[in-house]
Design a protein around this nucleic acid. Structure first.
Lengths: 205, 205
DNA sequence: AGTCGTAGTGACAGTCACTGACACTACCAG
DNA sequence: CTGGTAGTGTCAGTGACTGTCACTACGACT
């Protein structure tokens, strides 16, 4: 009964989310997930590469959404600005996916195997952003450094966001950017940066 | 014949490195690794948690070496400076482990499962550094941001190092730090930073 | 209406990573 | 030489993941 394929996929996602939350990731078998979704275990593995992948679906869309503004930028922004635009463009997706994301996060938080996959996913996203920057002629090392910095900024903003659930993510990103700038100043102030550091060091956090 | 345990462990490491290099990670079974090391498969799993972990041994030492200078710092350096000191302290280990590291890197480069583990390892290291910074009273968000920035800097330096095999890693770290500072300037120049940016923007790379 | 291609699926058998339990052996301390 | 401990072998079992083949819904084309 192959009605659409996408429906079975969606049922599998929900089934996995439920079971992982109920009895834990390790205590759940792929056969159980498939059974709850009304399909065979074999069918599960036709939709998802492995036991973990169910929780990381729709990641390709996120990548597309983030890459788009980098490729489409008409002006000539700095590498880090481009990365921050990418994350900013993804904010609607994060807002929309928030309820599911929290359940997901709770499961991942207690499952090392899933944390590993989560890291791999964000690393893959990073690589995609780097490629997008390279498309614009930015040399690979610079692109990589800027992307990693942008990821650090976004992580800091994102954590503040999920903690105190009400603020504006875009504003938090800007704020985190200033923090990072301050940190780099403190670490190795150039001769002329010291003066301005003293004037603005207390606006952070 | 449990001569020391550490010897079997070392043989397992070498056997795995050889087999993974020869026929690839996926085409190698844990039983084969154990056989080449002269032990049982069961014994393999007593020394290493899973099939991947053989390639990531001695990571605890690296963590200790990096945390030490953070805990021992007598002055009151900035968070990012502390992180950079940690990486600098680890340079001897990187230099010493270089020949093995290259074989390892080649295997990891063609094996997604191992890349995943590698990311997890560096993430775990990051967490350890964050904890060390927190021990010194640095608030968690700041510690996390500084550590991520430091990791980005080190990665950039490390890649330049393995590419052109002759330079000084410490110098490359300093250089990468300047690059990151420049990137943050370019991304969001503060009112008074614009002037100094114009004066120093062309010293990068 | 019938035919064909395609996508999704079930059924089955098999490999392999990983675990628990128990018994055995080398070594060290008293 | 007695006992404790650490490292190991053996065996049996679970569960993730794969290859293969046959079957079924569905849309397109004639």
């Amino acid at each position: 009964m192959p009605r659409s394929g996408a429906q079975a996929r969606a049922r599998l996602r929900e089934a996995a989310l439920d079971l992982y939350a109920e009895r834990g990731y390790d205590a759940t078998t792929t056969a159980e997930i498939a059974a709850r979704a009304g399909v065979t275990e074999r069918t599960y593995f036709r939709h998802f590469a492995d036991k973990r992948e169910v929780l990381f679906d729709g990641e390709a869309e996120l990548r597309e959404v983030m890459i788009a503004p980098i490729a489409a930028a008409q002006d000539a922004p700095s590498p880090l600005s481009l990365v921050l635009r990418a994350y900013t463009a993804a904010i609607p997706m994060f807002v929309a996916g928030r309820p599911v994301a929290e359940r997901r996060a709770q499961i991942i938080a207690v499952t090392p195997a899933l944390q590993e996959r989560a890291h791999a996913k964000s690393a893959a996203l990073t690589e995609a952003l780097i490629s997008a920057l390279e498309q614009r002629g930015i040399p690979e090392p610079t692109a990589r450094l800027a992307t990693r910095a942008g990821a650090a900024i976004f992580e800091r903003a994102s954590r503040a966001w999920t903690g105190t659930s009400a603020q504006d993510l875009a504003a938090l990103i800007t704020q985190a950017s200033h923090e990072l700038r301050t940190l780099t100043w403190e670490a190795m102030p150039g001769p002329q940066a010291l003066a301005s550091l003293a004037a603005t060091a207390d606006d952070g956090a």
